[in-house]
């Protein structure tokens, strides 16, 4: 079984474990995003068929919730917190700096696939505001000036790997 088949088998066995397929769209999408990191058109179509609902419905839900993303995430997924505390302490500036240095928009991924950028709401570390989380690792009290250092750290990690 190759990696693709394994991933699909995991998703299918999850969906098939439900007693009823009613109301199981959102949890199935969560599971798929856990497995694949994002929700491709093919996966959305697959889920629609498996649950017996129109693909348009699936797409409607995916585009409604900002948590779901439809493009592959970078190797390093950067989430800038835009919660109230982080926002008042300047996270919008930090986000702008990431956008300009990476040359991508929120929700985008760099061409080399290394970084992707998202804005999130409160991670519960308001004491460290503004907060940036990279693959779950929290960087606190980030300023505009810190952005290039954070990016360089991951780039050099990549270079030595």
């Amino acid at each position: 079984m190759n990696e693709n088949d394994k991933q699909l088998a995991e998703l299918d066995s999850y969906i098939d474990s439900f007693d009823t397929k009613k109301g199981k769209l959102i949890v199935s999408l969560h599971k798929a995003q856990d497995i694949y990191g994002y929700l491709s058109v093919d996966i959305q179509k697959h889920i629609a068929k498996r649950l017996g609902i129109p693909a348009s419905k699936v797409y409607g839900v995916v585009t409604f919730y900002s948590f779901f993303n439809t493009t592959p995430k970078g190797k390093y997924s950067i989430d800038v917190c835009m919660g109230t505390a982080c926002f008042v302490r300047g996270s919008a500036d930090v986000l702008e700096e990431f956008k300009s240095q990476l040359k991508i928009d929120v929700g985008g991924t760099t061409e080399d696939g290394l970084f992707s950028l998202d804005s999130i709401r409160c991670v519960g570390a308001c004491g460290l505001a503004p907060v940036v989380s990279v693959n779950g690792k929290v960087h606190g009290r980030v300023t505009r000036a810190d952005v290039s250092k954070i990016l360089d750290d991951y780039k050099s990690k990549e270079a030595t790997a």
Partner: peptide, 17 residues
């Protein structure tokens, strides 16, 4: 099942998959 409301808020549109 061609139509569904897609996207969100001001961008909401009766769209296709």
């Amino acid at each position: 099942g061609v139509y569904s409301a897609v996207h969100r808020g001001f961008d909401t549109v009766m769209g296709t998959a």
